[in-house]
């Protein structure tokens, strides 16, 4: 039962931590109100989880081919919860999927369980690559969106209306894409036990997981959104749109079976659905916009502080999980 409570807590923490990635820029740029944005977030995070979470969720099954007992998931979840909680306290939006994978690796190393290093290496490679892709992609998307809006020669009040409508649309799509990623993080760890130790329908599990995320977002994300929304760099509404568009492209690309199968077929590669850090994509996108504007109004110190957490947080989680596993072996 403890593992279920921890999964519930993790879901709530994820909601508090990740809502900022979807609507943080829009709320930070004062284009959307929290009370409106959060309901869109909840609805689409649940939809994304039910429709798409099964694909990135599979990674948790595949990274450790020979699995462990269900009770052991507590040892894996505990370091992730602590690390995420601390990062929220430090006002850093951290990557929960990465923390989970590193916690699993720490646990597996300590307990001598085989690890699929091929998948792990490819995961690390993609995780390093995605911030760079986001950084470049957001500049292209910003340029495209800005050019289209300028081309329409709209009155600024209509432009404001169009941007708000697009922010809601893009936000919903990003929440949908994030729903599969995030729910995969909470539920994915339990997927090997489905129908054996846990007798529950997978979709119901995804629904419960994403509902926890929604609850976390509803009750605990407001302060984080207002803190992080404008902490790194001043975000204008068009930048917020470009950031969301980048998130949608990156997250959907790596969570959609349809897209991955097409890319694999087209380019003869062996990509697989995997959880991507929305926090990293968001920060890299904000920095991409900041770079495009010559790093004016950018808090470099804060940016470096958050980027450094991308390295030390997984390491801390790995060490914590490793020693916790050794202690309770």
């Amino acid at each position: 039962m403890t593992y279920l409570i921890l999964a519930l807590v993790l879901g709530i923490i994820i909601g508090a931590n990740d809502a900022v990635n979807v609507f943080g820029s829009a709320i930070g740029s004062k284009m959307l109100k929290f009370s409106l944005a959060i309901w869109f977030f909840i609805i689409f995070i649940i939809l994304g989880a039910i429709i798409n979470a099964q694909y990135p969720s599979a990674i948790y099954k595949n990274i450790i081919p020979s699995y462990f007992s269900l009770d052991r998931t507590v040892i894996i979840l505990m370091p992730v919860i602590v690390a995420t909680f601390v990062s929220i306290k430090l006002k850093i939006s951290s990557s929960i999927s990465q923390s989970l994978i590193f916690s699993i690796i720490g646990f597996a190393t300590a307990t001598g369980i085989n690890i699929n290093y091929d998948i792990f290496e490819r995961l690390i490679f993609i995780w390093i690559l995605t911030p760079f892709i986001s950084f470049l992609l957001v500049i292209i998307l910003y340029f495209l969106i800005n050019s289209c809006l300028n081309l329409l020669k709209l009155n600024i009040f209509y432009k404001d209306f169009v941007i708000r409508a697009l922010l809601i649309l893009f936000g919903c799509l990003a929440a949908f894409a994030l729903g599969s990623n995030l729910t995969a993080s909470i539920v994915g760890i339990f997927s090997p036990f489905l129908n054996s130790s846990i007798h529950i329908n997978e979709n119901l599990l995804f629904f419960l997981g994403s509902s926890c995320i929604g609850l976390g977002a509803l009750f605990f994300s407001k302060k984080i959104i207002h803190n992080i929304g404008t902490k790194v760099s001043k975000i204008n509404p068009v930048s917020a749109l470009a950031i969301l568009a980048t998130q949608i492209v990156i997250l959907l690309f790596f969570s959609s079976k349809l897209i991955i199968d097409y890319v694999n077929l087209k380019f003869g590669i062996n990509l697989f659905a995997m959880p991507i850090s929305a926090s990293h994509v968001t920060l890299a996108s904000i920095l991409g916009i900041a770079a495009f504007k010559g790093f004016r109004e950018t808090n470099i110190k804060n940016s470096l502080f958050i980027i450094s957490s991308w390295i030390y947080l997984p390491v801390v989680v790995f060490i914590f999980s490793y020693y916790l596993s050794l202690t309770f072996r």
Partner: peptide
């Protein structure tokens, strides 16, 4: 209505 947050001051 928190409209045109960017240009509000200018307008």
């Amino acid at each position: 209505e928190t409209l045109i947050p960017e240009q509000r001051g200018d307008v």
